[in-house]
């Protein structure tokens, strides 16, 4: 009888100590502005593992900063991302300006938070038309040579069909009339031009400048365009939560080991979107076409 009582006392004492020991730190570590889990969808890429790795540092930063759980969710294409966003499966996504306009047209719950810097100094994004240095040095309409073979990045890329078409239009050329090929990336477009496999190509300005020393020449440059943006799902996140998330992203300092956000974020600005919106408006079919092209391309 005595032995049983002793065990009982010990058990109660241990339970009490354990509860105190466990409760004290957990209460102290939980500031609680974000009592929920956020699902984050980065840009769709061919390599999910690499994509996940690129996002890993950012998600870990947000978790530590906001004391929330951030779970990356990978999707094969933009269409799936937009669908997931509208169905409330994700709370935070990264989008290019073109896809953002598409989303805005589909739902009112898309709230842009920050712009993703692609260059340390530049606050905007520009697309160019480029050619090898020993190739054409100016655009002619119509071309004297056989039809220019055009290298393109991706269908939904800002510097893809939309801006290449836009820049060609300035010189009296029409992309749909020229032979074109999606090469998948800005680097692939640059390399193809270097190798003279294409006469002209559309790609981001900062990529084109990187290959300039190797032998790439920029023929024309677009006006400033909005950068990629991080968009919050206001159906899932409150204004306070969005504000907290925005503040955390703006506080983010680049980590050399992660490509995502390597140059940090800027506050979202509607300013550049007006011009971009007018370009898009000039090519009303482009948006829908691009989405379809993108789906086919993948």
């Amino acid at each position: 009888m005595k032995r049983t009582s002793l065990f009982a006392y010990l058990w109660i004492a241990l339970c009490g100590l354990s509860s105190v020991a466990l409760a004290t730190p957990s209460m102290a570590e939980r500031p609680a502005p974000f009592p929920k889990t956020i699902h984050y969808a980065p840009l769709p890429m061919n390599n999910p593992a690499f994509n996940l790795a690129k996002s890993q540092v950012l998600t870990q930063y947000l978790q530590a900063k906001l004391h929330i759980q951030v779970i990356p969710k990978l999707y094969d294409n933009y269409e799936d991302i937009l669908t997931a966003f509208q169905q409330g499966e994700v709370e935070l996504i990264e989008l290019g300006p073109l896809v953002y306009f598409t989303l805005q047209s589909q739902t009112e719950h898309a709230t842009p938070l920050v712009s993703v810097k692609h260059h340390p100094q530049e606050e905007y994004y520009q697309c160019v038309l480029a050619a090898p240095i020993d190739g054409i040095n100016h655009l002619e309409s119509p071309p004297t040579q056989p039809a220019y073979k055009v290298a393109l990045t991706q269908p939904l890329s800002t510097c893809g069909w939309l801006m290449t078409q836009h820049l060609l239009e300035k010189h009296g050329l029409h992309l749909e009339t020229l032979p074109s090929q999606y090469l998948g990336s800005h680097e692939a477009v640059a390399m193809a031009l270097i190798r003279k496999e294409h006469q002209i190509g559309g790609l981001a300005r900062f990529i084109a400048e990187r290959y300039a020393n190797l032998g790439l020449r920029i023929l024309d440059t677009s006006e400033p365009l909005p950068q990629f943006i991080m968009v919050a799902n206001n159906a899932k996140l409150s204004a306070d939560e969005r504000n907290a998330l925005q503040a955390a992203l703006l506080d983010y300092r680049s980590n050399e080991q992660t490509p995502m956000g390597i140059y940090g974020f800027n506050p979202f600005s509607e300013k550049l979107f007006d011009r971009f919106q007018s370009i898009v408006a000039q090519n009303p079919h482009t948006q829908q076409y691009a989405l379809k092209q993108e789906a086919v391309h993948r």
């Binding site: 090898p132 240095i133 020993d134 270097i194 190798r195 003279k196 020393n213 190797l214 032998g215």
Partner: peptide, 10 residues
């Protein structure tokens, strides 16, 4: 040099 590099690459 630049042209030679370009030629070599090609």
């Amino acid at each position: 040099t630049q042209q030679a590099r370009l030629d070599l690459y090609r």
